[in-house]
Simulated scan of single mutants.
Amino acid sequence: MSQRPEEPRPRWALVAIPIMWIVAVSVIDILAPPDIHLGPLLVAAPAITPSFGGPRTVGLVAALAVVAQTLIGVIRDPDELLSANHEAQIIALILVGVSLVVFCVVRERRATELTQVRYVSEAAQRVVLPPLPRRLGPLRASALYLAAEAEARIGGDLYAAARTTSGTRLIVGDVRGKGLGAVNDAALLLGAFRVAAHRQAGLGELVTYLDRSVCWDLMEPGETGRFGETFITATIMDIPDRNGPVQMISCGHPPPVVLRDGRPTTMHARHPAPPLGLGELAHPRYDVASFAFEPGDLLLLYTDGVTEARDATGAFYPLTDRITGWSERDPDAFLHRFRRDLLRHVGGHLNDDAAMIVVERPALPRE
């Protein structure tokens, strides 16, 4: 059930400002010479109230301003009760007050809608992209997802992990396109990965199954128009529990980075495969690459929203240059620093979704 957010509680120190303004203007106007009229300044009181108060507070301040203007007219013109000038000012205050109250009601309605959108998007993210376990066997892991849209918390970037009898399988990917279609494609691929990753099949067989799953979905009724136009870049890898090389198949995705003693090394695949969803067109052979992942190393997997993030001059985020020399070994601490650094580079707003996974193979205890 949706819950309507309560009207923000105004800070009484701020509410006192428009009230004091009403009192000050009223006293000065009453004491001023007859040819000086300060009543129009009363409109400033309700005008500033929406910046810290809701409809009730604005309505209260507007009513006080109308009462003050009425008292000024009665005191200054006791014989005529209210002059035409004071009546016009009272009508103007009433119109301004009603307009401001309506504005506050519309603003609260909009805030309620945004709250519901965020709630739904967060719920969808928890279903499609549940948090990675902090422990993957002997490995420690953490994941970060940064959505480009303020109202949305999920898009076409994806990641997941699955345990096998000998290690951990990881996938990180990026769906071409945006919106609900991208979310649907991401959910499809993640579902297929979770079903098949636990099997003892080789990495090449797993990627073949994932590619066919994407292709089968695109051949469903109503989806055939997207065949050949929708695809998913991805990196799928096996990380053994014991010391040994990581096996990896890259399907058109940015290469992972291994950070060892503050020195990053990019792990390029010698023969990358085409993105998932294009297998029926390209008929690829999946070559498995391997690289060392030693105790004390950090393994970084990410989407192109990271490396294609631009600063005010249009320069891309230089991932390996920025993380050179970083001493953080805890995945959470690394991602906390990375988040601050990336957002500082782009000026606080991303133009594309970005995701990163950090995996640590803990250093062996010293004997």
Rank of each mutant, 00 (worst) to 15 (best):
A148Y: 02
G167M: 13
L189N: 04
G179H: 12
R126P: 06
T224S: 11
S213H: 06
L203I: 14
L146R: 11
L189F: 02
L170K: 12
V214L: 09
Y119G: 14
E223N: 12
Y145L: 15
L206Q: 03
G155E: 13
A123V: 03
A187C: 00
T168V: 15
R226Q: 14
E151K: 04
S121A: 15
G137C: 09
V120Y: 00
G179A: 10
V117Q: 07
A152K: 09
G202R: 00
A143V: 15
L132D: 02
T224K: 14
A182L: 12
R140F: 02
L206E: 05
E205R: 00
P130L: 10
V175Y: 05
Q116L: 10
R135G: 08
A148G: 11
E149Q: 08
D185V: 08
A196M: 04
L129G: 05
R176K: 15
Q125K: 12
T208G: 08
R176V: 15
G179T: 11
A150V: 03
G156W: 09
H198W: 03
V214S: 07
A148M: 06
H198A: 11
H198T: 13
Y209M: 07
L144E: 15
A197S: 09
A186W: 03
G167E: 02
Y145A: 14
A123W: 00
R134W: 02
A196D: 03
L132E: 02
R212F: 02
G156T: 13
A124G: 06
A197L: 00
S121Q: 09
V172N: 10
L218E: 10
E122G: 06
A152S: 13
V183H: 09
I171Y: 01
A187S: 08
E151G: 03
I154A: 11
C215L: 10
A143K: 02
K178N: 09
R226M: 13
V172H: 09
L136R: 12
A124S: 12
S142A: 15
D211L: 01
S213E: 03
A197H: 04
A160N: 14
Y119P: 05
G222M: 06
